Every structure is written in C-alpha cells, then in structure tokens.
Simulated assay, not measured.
Amino acid sequence: MHRQRVMIRTFGLAAAVALAATGCGPQKSGAAPAAPSSPVAGSSPAASPSTPDDGKAGASSPAASPSQPSSPSASAPSSPGVKPIMANGDESEQIRELQARLRQLKLLSTAPTGFYGSKTTAAVKTFQSQHGLGATGSVDEATWQKIQGLSKKPTDDELRPPTTNEVDAPDPRCMQGRVMCISKESRTLAWMIDGKVVSTMDVRFGSENTPTREGEFQVGWKAKEWTSTIYHTSMPYSMFFSEGQAVHYSSDFAARGYAGASHGCVNVRDKAKLSALFDQVKVGDKVVVYW
C-alpha cells in the first residue's frame, strides 16, 4: 500500500487505476491462466493473423503454456497425392529440428521456435527448388529425407541457441519518432529514433492463454523497481504501455529462455541492455507490437 500511495502521488489517479492490474510474471507449468486485461481505451490493437509466423508467443517449448495443436494447416500447399508431414501452421519439436537443419544449410536465419510460419515456408521452398523437388513450401517425406541427408543432427545449442535473435524488418509505424518496435515474428525489440535502430534485444511474450496485445501504444509510466500486484513477481525496469502489460526484465527468461512465457508482458533477458534502454525511454514514447 505504501508503494501504491507513492505511485499515486507521482503519476496521479489514472496511473493508480493501472497499478491494480500489473499482472505480468513467468508462466509455470500447470498454473491456471489469468485472464488478460482489456486493451487501453482508444488504442487499436491489430488482430492476430490467422496463420502467425515462426516467432509465435509462448510456442517455443513444451514447457510453455499450450498453444495451437500440431496439425497440418488446411490451406498448406501440397502436390496431389503427396501428404505433407510438416506444413504452415503446424507446431512440434520435429519442426524445431527442421528449422535447425535449415539454419545449417544457410536457408533460415532466425532461431528455431518449433512453429512453422512464413519464414520456414520460404526456406523450404528455396530448398525444394534447389534440389528438384516440388516447391510447395510444405515438407513431405522426400523433402525431409533430403534435408536430413544434407545436414547433421542438431545439437541442443542449435535447437535452442542462446544467441541474440536477428531483428525483423521494422513495422512502418516504427519509422517516425521514438519507438520501441517489438516484433513477435523475430522475438526482438528494436529501440528506434526517427527510423534508425539504436539498440536491439531478445524478447519473450505471453502464452496463447495470456497473449501480449498487438497494436500501437504509448509508454504510460515507468518503474525501475516494481513487483506484480497479481503474481507478486519482480518486474525490474518496467515500462507500462497497455494497462498491466509492460516491457520489463525477467530473471525467468534469463534462466529458462523460451522454455517459458510471460502472463502478457514483453520480457527482456539482457538486464544491462534494458537498463540502458530504460534510461532513454520517456513517458509518451511510442510502442508498436506487431507480427
């Protein structure tokens, strides 16, 4: 209560209302999902695409909260009579291995996620074209055998690399002003000023049950030290942009990587980078979360 009274004096009544729902924290296996807050009045979060891409939030490990079941997409292209074993819209550990092998073959630059999206589809099409296979973009038995024959069994580090993700092309809304440009596809945050990237860092999102909202927002308030009022977990360097959702450091993300998920916040695992970003970002700066 003392902390809330301090925040009320600092940020006023509007911020005090937001404090009642700062609900981000790491998801734990078997924990009941919390209902996500409604979007901020006046904001226009973009609807999630029907076929999200490789960086699907919370989809990178069985340890994360469950998301879409693994089943071939009805719209996945395939040759008549040839049944795909992996296709756009699917999610599995076999797809994580496929992505790691495609990285070995220099056909995929992003880290494996286990979700088969547009980048994986494009990489598979390129491979098929290079080797005289039907360029469907989905993996049938012949394509899978060829990929396995030309690559080696991925190591644990290749399946879940600790390295920084490659930054995605910025959304057009990120090209003007001061923006935290956050891509769900590449799982990166790019701090941009007038269209130029100043710094980048890996991020993690909410699960399928507690998704991180997409759209264009503003930083409403900041707190260098904060504790979730719902989950009672530490949220250092919090920058709130959509009610209880914030960009903040996560020790769970630093320890477990993409084997977990947040309850809707944008987690950062590099504390030093986020500390520097926290000092630069001002209340009122733009936040864009997009696929």
Rank of each mutant, 00 (worst) to 15 (best):
M1F: 11
R3Y: 11
R3A: 11
Q4T: 09
Q4K: 10
M7K: 05
M7W: 13
I8Q: 13
G12C: 04
G12T: 01
A14F: 06
A16N: 12
V17P: 00
A18I: 02
A20F: 14
C24M: 07
Q27T: 10
S29I: 12
A31R: 06
P33W: 13
A34F: 12
A35T: 13
P36M: 13
A41G: 01
P45F: 07
P45L: 04
A46T: 14
S48I: 07
P52S: 09
D53K: 09
D54P: 10
K56T: 12
A57W: 14
A57V: 09
A57I: 09
A57T: 05
G58A: 10
A59V: 06
S61K: 05
P62S: 12
P62T: 14
P66H: 14
S67D: 10
P69T: 11
S70E: 02
P72C: 15
S73T: 05
S75V: 09
V82G: 01
P84F: 11
I85F: 05
N88F: 15
D90V: 07
S92A: 14
Q94R: 14
L98M: 12
Q99G: 06
Q99Y: 06
R103V: 06
R103Y: 02
Q104P: 00
L107Y: 05
L108D: 00
S109D: 03
T110M: 08
T113N: 10
T113R: 14
F115N: 10
S118Q: 09
T120S: 06
K125C: 03
T126P: 02
T126Q: 15
F127M: 04
A135I: 04
T136H: 04
S138N: 05
S138M: 11
A142L: 11
K146G: 04
I147W: 14
L150R: 14
S151C: 07
K153R: 08
T155N: 03
R160I: 07
P162H: 06
T164G: 00
E166K: 09
E166S: 04
V167M: 01
D168M: 11
P170K: 08
D171E: 13
D171M: 12
P172L: 13
Q176W: 04
G177H: 01
C181H: 01
I182P: 02
S183D: 01
K184W: 08
E185N: 15
S186F: 08
A190G: 00
A190Q: 03
A190K: 00
A190M: 02
K196R: 04
V197H: 00
M201T: 13
R204A: 13
R204F: 07
S207E: 05
E208S: 15
T210N: 12
T212M: 13
E214Y: 09
F217H: 01
G220F: 10
W221N: 03
W221K: 05
K222Y: 12
A223I: 04
A223T: 00
K224R: 15
K224N: 13
E225H: 15
T227Q: 06
T227Y: 06
Y231M: 03
Y231Q: 00
P236F: 11
P236C: 10
P236M: 12
P236Y: 09
Y237D: 09
S238A: 15
H248G: 03
H248M: 06
Y249I: 06
Y249K: 02
D252F: 11
D252M: 08
D252I: 08
A255W: 00
G260A: 11
A261C: 15
S262E: 03
S262T: 05
G264M: 11
C265Q: 02
V266C: 09
N267M: 12
V268C: 14
K273L: 12
Q280C: 00
Q280P: 00
V288I: 10
